[in-house]
């Protein structure tokens, strides 16, 4: 379930889709509903967090993607992928550019598309348990929800290459050291810290805060468009379908990791 509330100028968007907020058409529709309804006049800040135990988000819904590719004839794959990617990019861009101070609270898994969602936030607060990674190359693709341009916006190319080309994950302390996370807090303290940060943001002049955000965090439009095309091309190859099949059919508690 995905729900939200607005209290004293601070929105709280709670992601609660089991097992770990996989991003597929259901999550996408819920995020679109939120964005259509968000009142940017009354609110000053937005806190995005997960209410599921496993973490912030495990990324794209690979089971849904596998079924979608399996059931459609190959000649329809490009259009279907493009339709989904255009939709998800629109959601990510709208979140990124919201005229509110946005704060992501991360615990546990923050992988792939979930990491890409986190990267739309202005401020990331990570609990000790947080783990960030882009496992996409293990599936024969690259991040496709805008993750590479947004990661490059925040951290150095050397770190971006290490994360992408090895698929390895990093903890909250490392994420803070490289400038991805601004606050690291004990497990269970993320929401309190985020609310305190959000309340601080509500004290400032709105126009100054909005101008600061626009100036400091421009949307990397050209790179986002390039990433889409790379993703759509790579995702049509048999290597992805084979990797998804292995992942979906595995009942090993250790995830499929080439």
């Amino acid at each position: 379930m995905i729900e939200w509330s607005l209290i004293e100028g601070v929105y709280e968007l709670r992601l609660g889709v089991e097992p770990c907020n996989e991003i597929g058409t259901t999550m996408l529709a819920a995020l679109e509903r939120f964005l259509d309804q968000v009142d940017t006049e009354s609110a000053h800040a937005l806190v995005i967090r997960s209410t599921v135990r496993g973490g912030f988000s495990a990324g794209a819904d690979l089971r849904e993607l596998y079924e979608e590719l399996r059931q459609r004839p190959e000649r329809e794959h490009e259009d279907a992928l493009r339709e989904f990617i255009d939709r998800i990019h629109s959601v990510m861009d709208r979140l990124d550019m919201l005229p509110l101070t946005t704060i992501g609270v991360i615990h546990g898994i923050c992988f792939g598309g979930g990491f890409e969602l986190a990267l739309t936030c202005d401020i990331l607060i990570a609990e000790r348990s947080a783990r960030f990674g882009f496992p996409e190359l293990r599936l024969g693709i690259i991040p496709g929800f805008g993750g590479i341009p947004r990661l490059r916006r925040d951290v150095s190319n050397a770190v971006v290459r290490d994360l992408l080309l090895t698929g390895r994950s990093i903890n909250a302390k490392k994420a803070q050291q490289i400038g991805l996370v601004s606050q690291m807090v004990p497990t269970g303290e993320g929401l309190r810290a985020a609310m305190a940060t959000a309340r601080q943001a509500t004290k400032f002049d709105r126009e100054a805060a909005k101008t600061c955000k626009r100036f400091m965090k421009p949307l990397p439009v050209e790179e986002l468009a390039q990433e889409k095309e790379h993703f759509i091309r790579l995702a049509q190859r048999p290597v992805l379908k084979l990797a998804l099949k292995k992942f979906v059919e595995s009942d090993d508690p250790r995830p499929y990791l080439p």
Binding site: P19, C20, R53, G54, G55, A58, G108, I109, R128, S129, A130, R131, G133, T166, G167, R168, S169, I170, N171, A172, K173, K174, P253, R254, P255, L257
Partner: peptide, 22 residues
């Protein structure tokens, strides 16, 4: 696997090391 990832973060912080997944 979710708890295992969380455990890896705890171990890295406890022992002050980085352990690449591979």
């Amino acid at each position: 696997s979710f708890a295992a990832a969380e455990l890896m973060s705890e171990l890295e912080l406890e022992f002050d090391v980085e352990i690449p997944d591979y």
